[in-house]
Design a protein around this nucleic acid. Structure first.
Lengths: 389, 389
DNA sequence: ACGCAATTTGAATCTGTCT
DNA sequence: TAGACAGATTCAAATTGCG
């Protein structure tokens, strides 16, 4: 039950907008965006208006439970995650923390909004189970296949070469946002899979501290956020990140014409994030951000084709092979030897199929070859889009 | 803290063997192997001697919760999993079932034994959390990257293209078995990663029922079990599969010189498994079984170039001569004055050619000269080839 | 028998909107 | 709110069919 992006309106415009109170509520309490809040994410999320953000991306502490120091075969020391924010007393304490921030996130998320959480095997089962227990509806688990992971230096296990993201909606019947066509384009024309091959955040993209080391131990690559935001938001949407860190989510959001709200406890990270996001250049031509989708093109009833005289009552329709035929009636229904109804209904009936897209199924003779009646729809749509502007 | 297979002695020889009574206990109550037990897996596991098996591989019901019928775009019907054994009243009921069979599995597993469970996002968080709660120690979560998954026919989500396996030991300090070198060899000399690219079980390997359809709805490929058994058992080990189905685990175990114990409720599956395993020929030279998949050059979608920031949305592309131009969109499509589509489509369209390799046709300005965008693809491939097995 | 085309199939939580 | 209806939607492999 995904929502789809609109081609005509850059603003979020699900078809039901007019019937929804959500937009009114949003205007009543417009949430402040493109800001970073300093402090505890649970408290701050609870201070924000409820049902006010379109997407939440969360990269919570993983509760890594590392042992002592780890060294590479050449004896150099591995700079692991040993920060205080990743320490929990027990699994139960981690579960409690997880369910508390998820509850606050659920409250601030719009009913049709999306939620992403990234983690590893240390914590992702706790997170995933909590999500399901709290009523979230998992849409996909997505694997980030790291193209350049850190090897397992001891040779004791498989190279830990991926992380897992859970993408979910707020409920099973929510109208979540999914830019199917944009994802397909991004993958050279075939469906985007649930496993994404992307490199770690290294090189110039990786923020450095004064001593030259990495500023944040788990900075995510912007490419990962790029895909997340392209997949599940529209331009102008509000994206909340309760574990903002050095602001990868904010940088990607700004780059893609989305608004961000960051929450972060560490003043050093916040300062770095502000500098980083300020340096991001927004795309000037907003048209570049649009991701057209067939689903949101204006509907054209077949009757409009007859009405405009593009087909006369009595005109003969056939399928591509010429095996099935039907005639057009003045009211936009069509009639075959045994069935009468819409182009879709008759197309399905003559084939004995459960469904049929009549626009692509039926053809008309044009000189020596057959042409799909969908070209007639295209002509009408072309006229419609011109008249709008 | 893995045990390693000894290169000199084929028998199991963990370093601490001399301090253990396990081998004596095993001789006192030799467990009957290479059998299939008919019945409920919890009851039967509880009837087996405790701490008696070296490895457990479990492919439990996933609790898929499918809706109505699903059809492909060509209107053919998808043969989904609608078996009674995959139906549970609630998440709580599934959790209860999970923890009961895991408790029985824990009892029958040796202290240094390994446990694998495979699942999807529907159930794997429940399983993973239960494992951690019960004291198991997760060693890796392993992603089975399906090379030929079923697409998402409605265009509503990402193609569900992987499943997850959790590999764990019985406790944090257990001396589990891991054949590091065998895995490394299997992966062309570099460490085996936590994501495995393997095809689905299809073709001649897939067991058929009398009506020609699939005999079991979720038969796993033997290649998956090969890798599991090669990684975490030694020849002669006893492998238990409490959800034996049509015996993939048994077939792989026999092929690799391991012993199996299967538990299965369905008499039809048991009969098929017996026939199947009887037909398996044990191979003397285990090395012959190592069949690293031939690697083709990874396909790189143009979107990956944009996503990684190697080209910004709005970037100008030209052909080698500068005669044609196009601009990059955020979703990886490009737009010329008259055409929109992939780099290949637009390249063909502007030339009026039937086809075009966009990677070599389009260039970007780099200082004073133009560079083919194919160099960007080469960079990405260089990263990927290090990481794909 | 061989080569090419057409058909089949796989663990799937698989629609949106208006009346 | 339940029902009707428009109409959008698939990839890699293996197998079968045909010339």
């Amino acid at each position: 039950m995904p929502r789809k992006a609109s081609t005509t309106a850059p603003a979020k415009a699900p078809r039901k907008t007019s019937r929804k109170v959500a937009s009114a509520a949003k205007q009543a309490a417009p949430i402040k965006t493109d800001v970073i809040h300093a402090g505890n994410c649970i408290e701050i999320m609870n201070s924000l208006p409820e049902k006010s953000v379109d997407l939440i991306f969360a990269d919570p502490p993983y509760n890594l439970q590392l042992g002592g120091e780890l060294h590479r075969p050449d004896n150099s020391r591995v700079d692991g995650v040993d920060d205080a924010w990743d320490k929990f007393e027990s699994i139960a304490a981690y579960d409690k923390f997880t369910r508390e921030w998820l509850a606050a996130a659920r409250r601030v998320l719009k009913d049709d909004g999306g939620l992403w959480v990234i983690g590893s095997y240390h914590n992702i089962f706790r997170v995933g189970a909590a999500l399901q227990d709290m009523g979230f509806w998992v849409l996909n688990d997505v694997v980030w296949h790291k193209t350049n992971p850190m090897p397992n230096f001891r040779g004791t296990r498989f190279t830990n070469a991926h992380e897992t993201l859970v993408w979910c909606a707020k409920s099973p019947d929510a109208k979540y946002m999914f830019n199917y066509d944009a994802m397909k384009q991004l993958n050279d024309g075939t469906q985007m899979r649930s496993d994404w091959a992307l490199p770690l955040c290294t090189g110039a993209e990786r923020l450095k501290s004064d001593d030259g080391g990495k500023l944040h131990p788990t900075q995510k690559p912007e490419s990962l956020l790029y895909r997340v935001l392209m997949a599940s938001t529209q331009p102008g949407d509000v994206v909340l990140d309760p574990f903002f860190g050095t602001g990868t989510t904010g940088a990607a959001a700004k780059r893609l014409g989305r608004h961000y709200i960051g929450i972060e406890q560490d003043p050093g990270y916040i300062a770095a994030a502000r500098r980083r996001i300020a340096a991001v250049e927004e795309i000037e031509d907003k048209q570049l951000l649009l991701t057209p989708s067939k689903r949101t093109e204006p509907r054209v009833p077949f009757g409009a084709v007859v009405e405009r005289g593009m087909l006369q009552p009595g005109a003969l329709l056939t399928d591509a092979s010429g095996r099935f035929t039907a005639r057009v009636h003045a009211d936009g229904t069509i009639i075959s030897s045994e069935h009468r109804g819409s182009i879709h209904q008759v197309g399905a009936a003559v084939q004995g199929a459960p469904a049929c897209n009549g626009w692509t199924f039926w053809h008309v003779q044009n000189g020596s070859d057959r042409v799909s009646i969908d070209v007639l729809r295209q002509q009408i749509r072309a006229e419609m889009t011109q008249s709008i502007q």
